[in-house]
């Protein structure tokens, strides 16, 4: 608990909690950027699963710059939120479920980028079964990340390590 006590007593953590605007504006950035991260994944996965077959699959990566920018915003804002209430997140198993879901989903994206998205042969034919299974799994993982993220506001046992109870 020592490092949590130290982290929540840093001036940045206190400012995040008490400035009145910092916390909520960070939440706004986190939500909007998460919408884009999940959204672009939905578009890519729907295309792999066979929707909008006229879209050349390999060109879906042209939306990835928007994905990367938003992933950076999600990570930085997430780190800020974590610094605001470190105990709230680190003592909640749901937080680790969310991180694991995001990590697994991004691993799948990396895998698809190396495979089916790289080869223009898949532009006009149906994606292989393995890619379709991974795309479906990615959609489920993002739904899990959203749900566990939302649950973080409801499932924490302890808000701050310095709380007496």
């Amino acid at each position: 608990m020592d490092y949590l006590l130290w982290l929540e007593a840093t001036s940045f953590s206190i400012w995040m909690r008490e400035s009145g605007v910092a916390f909520f504006s960070t939440l706004v950035f986190h939500s909007v950027a998460m919408g884009f991260v999940v959204g672009i994944h939905i578009a890519m996965n729907l295309r792999i699963l066979g929707c909008a077959p006229g879209v050349p699959l390999s060109l879906m990566t042209r939306f990835f710059p928007v994905l990367w920018v938003n992933l950076v915003v999600v990570s930085i804002s997430g780190a800020f939120l974590l610094a605001s209430y470190p105990t709230k997140a680190f003592t909640n198993p749901v937080f680790y479920i969310k991180l694991a879901a995001v990590a697994a989903a991004l691993f799948i994206t990396w895998n698809l980028t190396k495979g089916v998205l790289r080869d223009p042969v898949h532009d006009t034919v149906r994606a292989p079964r393995r890619a379709r299974v991974l795309a479906a799994l990615s959609l489920l993982l993002w739904a899990g990340a959203i749900t566990s993220g939302r649950l973080l506001a409801y499932t924490h046992n302890k808000l701050l390590a310095s709380d007496p109870f």
Partner: peptide, 13 residues
């Protein structure tokens, strides 16, 4: 949130 992601991922894209 899933619904808004669907909107961003299709109409937004």
């Amino acid at each position: 949130f899933l619904g808004l992601s669907l909107l961003i991922g299709t109409v937004g894209v």
